[in-house]
Design a protein around this nucleic acid. Structure first.
Length: 522
RNA sequence: GGUCUGUUCAUCUAAGGGUUAGGAUUCAAGAUUUUCAUUCUUGCCAUAGGGGUUCGAAUCCCCUACAGACUACCA
């Protein structure tokens, strides 16, 4: 590579937008996590950049088997495409922090050598005791510039004692030496100017006694190594911004430090606090994209996919939680979202999650979806009922009933009578419509239907109307009673469409079945 | 407790010093559908409170209230 092209590639790599979604595999991804991934993805793709998935599994004690596979499957289902990740690979592999373990110790050492960090030998038990003691006095214990002088660390211990502790491999951690009275300022792309005084901060553990880095170290090191340009994450990370910035400074990486953006929280639909799994269970909506079976307890949590939501509608709903295009458009395809998405239109305040609007979005996507695709999604429901139905018929039924459905599975509720004779009759309708004389009228109608040659909706409707008029019967009674015979209740599409689809023989059979089964009134 | 962040209809939100504060969801009423749903029309409903600054504040500043996050060898 020539010097110039080398320079160019360096410059372009500096300009290329790179973002990451960095979940911890401690369980299924919830709505908030999916939205964070989505906003990262939209931001990157809007500018032709890269979206990486990095698995932050530095806490072995919280590792949940299956969680990582779940995260990837969920992103796949949502249509969020990963450019680099544990499964996809990439120039900065591995993308799983547990597999990058060796790397972090060197960086921790670098910080110790430069005086930005130190060894601490205090045990968890000792620190817990100090915290409890402080709490009993109504105070809070913090490991910081005020207390570190009185604790067990390489700052207080004589060099020789420290050496021997380390060489005897006594358990220890590495802590960041938080500087005194420094104001760290940052312009968050969503929140604007934020500032923190380091006096309020503590000496965070960077490297744990089990040989693993903490989130803070691993995150900063990996974001730097992976050339991440923008960190877009949940608001809960805002308080750690000063630590992260100080870390970039300590490493001498401030020039290429990513820009920060902190997304607002997603709140419960009712009550206080952020959205949790419990809310979903109580209010009857999923909080996970995919169903999840807890490997420990065996409990199954429902998912949007399994509940019949279409991924495009789900994504559309999520995109509008905390972001808006500034226009009155509400329905967006993924491509349109990529086109329109900018961080400056992300709001600062938390959004309450509204399951009703999610349903509405699904309905919107359902009625826009091609009938053949919906039919394909619906076929499994028919199979589960052991019904063999020609695909063309399924397509036709779906087209007829989809506008009255919120979910694919509701095609059954709205159109089961196209596939089988009603098994029961709505009682209210029976008592309201099945009155004196009605069975006789239905009998006559069945006879009349038998005489009709060409069996299609318009050619049934026209002579039928004439027949009813000539008889002088009340249309409301006839139509509703006929509907009762055919579908078992007071719902469904145009009655003549139903007649056409189920066929002449079946139409007549259903009328006769109703006459036989429903109570005679005289 | 401390630090940080936020607050416009019930809900998601628009309006970036000048509009009767706009749209969507929900809800209610009416029309359509000889059914139900859809659709259409209409209605209901908001700048957290108090001080400033200004000719003029949802918008800028301060205080209060409320809400949330963080305050682990978890992320």
């Amino acid at each position: 590579m020539s010097h110039i092209s080398c320079l160019i590639s360096h410059v372009s790599s500096l300009n290329r937008i790179r973002v990451r979604f960095a979940p911890s595999p401690t369980g299924p991804l919830h709505i908030g996590g999916v939205r964070t991934a989505l906003f990262n993805y939209l931001f990157a793709k809007h500018q032709g950049g890269d979206f990486l998935l990095r698995i932050e599994d530095t806490d072995q004690s919280r590792y949940v088997p299956g969680a990582e596979a779940y995260i990837m499957e969920a992103l796949d289902w949502c249509g969020i495409k990963i450019d680099e990740g544990p499964r996809e690979g990439g120039p900065h592999a591995p993308y799983r922090q547990s597999e990058r373990k060796e790397l972090y110790a060197g960086y921790a050492q670098q910080l110790i050598d430069s005086g930005h960090a130190y060894y601490a030998f205090d045990t968890s038990e000792e620190l817990d005791a100090l915290r409890n003691l402080a709490e009993s006095k109504g105070e809070t214990f913090t490991y910081n510039n005020l207390t570190r002088a009185g604790l067990n660390n390489s700052l207080t211990l004589p060099g020789s004692a420290c050496e021997s502790l380390l060489s005897s491999s006594a358990p220890h951690v590495v802590r960041f030496k938080m500087p005194e009275n420094v104001v760290v300022e940052e312009t968050d792309l969503i929140r604007g100017h934020v500032q923190f005084n380091t006096n309020q901060l503590d000496d965070k553990v960077l490297f744990k006694s089990d040989g693993m880095p903490t989130y803070h170290l691993a995150n900063v090191v990996d974001d730097h190594l992976m050339e991440i340009t923008h960190v877009i994450r949940g608001e809960e990370w805002l308080p750690s911004v000063p630590l992260h910035i100080l870390l970039y400074r300590a490493f001498g990486w401030e020039q290429t430090m990513p820009r920060f953006s902190h997304l607002p929280l997603i709140l419960k639909p009712v009550g206080k606090g952020k959205l949790s799994k419990r809310d979903g269970d109580q209010l009857g909506f999923p909080v996970f994209p995919l169903a999840w079976k807890d490997p420990e307890t065996g409990d199954v949590s429902r998912g949007y996919r399994e509940d019949g939501y279409l991924p495009d509608g789900f994504i559309n709903m999520l995109s509008l939680l905390g972001w808006n295009p500034g226009t009155e458009q509400e329905i967006f395809s993924m491509d349109q979202l990529i086109q329109s998405f900018t961080l400056d239109r992300v709001g600062k305040s938390g959004s309450r999650f509204d399951p009703e609007k999610t349903k509405w979005f699904n309905h919107q996507y359902l009625i826009r979806h091609a009938d053949t695709e919906l039919a394909t999604l619906f076929v499994p429901f028919l199979q589960s009922k052991c019904l063999e139905v020609p695909f063309e018929l399924v397509v036709r039924v779906v087209g007829l009933v989809k506008e009255r459905c919120h979910f694919v599975h509701e095609v059954w509720d709205q159109g089961f009578f196209f596939f089988q004779s009603p098994e029961s009759y709505d009682e209210k309708m029976v008592s309201k419509r099945w009155k004196d004389g009605v069975p006789e009228m239905m009998e006559e109608i069945a006879g009349f239907f038998a005489t009709i040659e060409t069996w299609n909706a318009p050619e049934i409707k026209e002579p039928f109307s004439r027949f009813v008029t000539e008889k002088g019967w009340n249309f409301g009674t006839i139509m509703n009673s006929l509907r009762l015979c055919l579908v078992g209740g007071s719902f469904g599409p145009d009655i003549f469409e139903i007649c056409e689809i189920i066929g002449k023989k079946e139409t007549i059979a259903r009328i006769q079945k109703a006459i036989a089964q429903l109570p005679g009134t005289n």
